[in-house]
Computed example of a mutant assay.
Amino acid sequence: MKKTLHSSNLIIRNAVFDDIGLLRDVYRRASLTVEEDRDLFAAHPEWLVWDDKMLPFTRVAVVNGRIAGFASACPVNGCLELEDLFTDPEWMRQGVAMALIKDIARRGARIEVTASPRAVRLYEAAGFIANGFANTEGGPAPRMYLDVTRAGLDRN
Rank of each mutant, 00 (worst) to 15 (best):
R106Q: 15
I101R: 00
Q94A: 15
I129S: 01
N9R: 14
G95F: 06
A134Q: 13
D103Q: 09
I20T: 11
R29N: 14
R66M: 13
R107H: 08
A119S: 15
V63M: 06
D103N: 12
M54E: 15
N14R: 14
V148L: 13
D52L: 01
R13W: 04
I101L: 08
S72N: 03
A30G: 04
S116W: 12
G152N: 03
V49C: 03
E90T: 10
V120N: 06
P140R: 06
R38C: 05
F86K: 02
E90A: 14
P45E: 05
S72P: 05
N14P: 08
S31V: 00
G139I: 04
S7I: 08
D52I: 00
T136Y: 04
N156M: 08
K102L: 07
A73S: 13
D37V: 00
K3V: 14
E36N: 10
I67Q: 07
A134N: 09
E46P: 05
A125I: 01
F70V: 07
L5N: 03
S72M: 05
V26S: 03
V148W: 07
T33M: 12
A43M: 10
L32S: 09
T33Q: 14
L55A: 07
L23P: 07
L82P: 01
C74Y: 12
A30H: 00
S8N: 09
M1Y: 00
L55E: 03
P56G: 06
R155S: 10
R150N: 11
W91Y: 15
R38K: 15
L5A: 10
Y123S: 04
D19R: 08
D19C: 07
F133P: 00
Y145F: 14
T136N: 05
L23V: 04
D39R: 12
L85C: 13
S72T: 13
A43T: 03
E137K: 13
Y123F: 15
P56C: 06
V60Q: 01
A15M: 05
L40Q: 04
S72K: 02
R150G: 02
T114H: 02
D154M: 01
W91V: 01
E36D: 15
M92H: 13
F17G: 10
T114G: 04
L32C: 13
A126H: 12
R38P: 03
D154C: 02
A61E: 04
K102I: 00
P140M: 09
L40F: 14
E124M: 12
R118G: 00
T149D: 11
A61I: 03
L153W: 01
A134E: 14
E36Q: 15
E112Q: 10
G95N: 07
A109Q: 10
D37H: 09
M98Q: 12
F133V: 11
R24G: 15
R106L: 06
I129C: 02
R110K: 14
R110L: 14
T149S: 15
M92G: 02
T87M: 02
M144Q: 08
F17Y: 04
D18Q: 13
F57S: 10
A43W: 02
R28I: 00
H44K: 07
T4D: 03
N14L: 10
E81Q: 09
D103S: 06
N135G: 05
M92S: 06
K2E: 13
A109C: 02
V16W: 00
G152V: 01
I11F: 07
V76F: 04
N14A: 14
E112H: 00
A151H: 03
F57I: 01
V120Q: 08
D39C: 05
